[in-house]
């Protein structure tokens, strides 16, 4: 463990130690010294990721009460519950950087913190449960598997478990679409419509094109991010272009092709203005998602206060009993 001191000489030594760990592709742990910018970047990234899990529960929770079979209802409940669990691990990982869950939650409620834009799109039909699983969770996995090797230990370790669960989520989404695609004409139409609506937003989940992503370079230098936005997006396109054939559906993009020269999959143009609009809060469901989170948080304040008050009273009671025992002795 390194101890933080003020002398410039020691700071340099600590910076050198940090740089060496990064160069060796080793892990930075919570008690290690780290540059403020590294801490800040990670806190922002991990808390945004946690917020995305929490807000991301909403579009799917929207279908729990209407799931069309009991088995699907059970699977969907388990999935949304997993997402709450992911939020919990991630808030915990972010807490090791010195920010409390309460303050991260307060930032989310106040509209100061971001979450993945994709969750500001509505889940209109049951087929959206399939498309979200296949495309949104699929894109999340493509993004997150490399994060299992992120230089910050608690983040990387949280991601290992999250990725395992996400891969189940993706498979269940694929299975929903497959069942619909092989179902009645109305079901197949529902599946195609959902894929049409979620395709472009899921591609935009990887973030802006590399030339417009100024923070990526630093994140890559710190071994937080391992591949560029465009690299990951291209891999994802390569994956789904094959899978969609098994589904018997199509992707709403006739410009997908493999570029032999670059070794990358290419896709048609994406509407980055729409991305910016949604990010700025002007998407179809931004207000609704925030309202629901605020209601749950504010509406539940009295419960959290009660739990804290009860815990304090119990602790006081135990302390009294200890005192009595000591006095009696």
């Amino acid at each position: 463990m390194t101890t933080a001191t003020d002398t410039p000489q020691d700071l340099t030594a600590e910076q050198e130690q940090f740089d060496r760990l990064i160069a060796e592709d080793s892990r930075i742990e919570p008690r290690d010294w780290m540059p403020e910018a590294y801490r800040k970047t990670l806190t922002r990234q991990i808390s945004q990721h946690a917020h995305s899990e929490i807000i991301g529960m909403q579009p799917e929770a929207n279908w729990i009460t209407r799931a069309p079979s009991l088995k699907r209802k059970a699977i969907l409940m388990a999935k949304v519950q997993d997402e709450a669990g992911h939020g919990l691990y991630l808030y915990s990982a972010a807490e090791t950087l010195g920010t409390t869950r309460d303050s991260m939650m307060a930032d989310l409620i106040a509209g100061k913190a971001r979450y993945s834009s994709i969750f500001n799109y509505p889940a209109r039909t049951w087929a959206d449960m399939g498309a979200i699983g296949w495309l949104v969770d699929g894109a999340a996995i493509a993004n997150q598997v490399p994060l299992c090797r992120a230089s910050y230990g608690p983040y990387g370790r949280a991601m290992v478990r999250i990725c395992k669960e996400e891969s189940f989520h993706q498979r269940q989404g694929f299975e929903i679409l497959l069942e619909l695609s092989n179902g009645t004409p109305a079901q197949k139409q529902m599946a195609q419509d959902a894929v049409n609506r979620w395709y472009a937003p899921s591609l935009m989940m990887f973030g802006p094109p590399d030339e417009d992503s100024p923070n990526s370079q630093q994140s890559m230098a710190w071994n937080i991010k391992r591949f560029s936005n465009d690299e990951l997006r291209s891999r994802f396109v390569g994956m789904i272009v094959e899978q969609v054939k098994t589904l018997g559906l199509t992707l709403p993009d006739d410009q997908i092709r493999y570029n032999d020269a670059t070794g990358r999959w290419e896709h048609g143009p994406l509407d980055w203005n729409e991305f910016k609009e949604v990010l700025a809060g002007r998407g179809p469901c931004n207000a609704q998602r925030m309202e629901r989170r605020r209601e749950a948080h504010d509406g539940g304040a009295w419960v959290r206060e009660a739990a804290a008050a009860y815990a304090a009273k119990q602790a006081a009671k135990r302390a009294d009993q200890r005192d009595m025992t000591v006095k009696a002795a």
């Binding site: 929490i54 529960m57 009991l70 409940m77 949304v80 919990l88 209601e295 539940g300």
Partner: peptide, 29 residues
């Protein structure tokens, strides 16, 4: 109970009430 998932007073309760609902669905099935 399924209604509570994403609306509970605390994340731990989203998980707990979700779990209870899930158990009940299992018994119902």
């Amino acid at each position: 109970l399924g209604w509570w998932i994403s609306r509970a007073p605390e994340l731990e309760e989203d998980v707990a009430l979700g779990n209870i609902a899930l158990d009940q669905i299992g018994h119902a099935r």
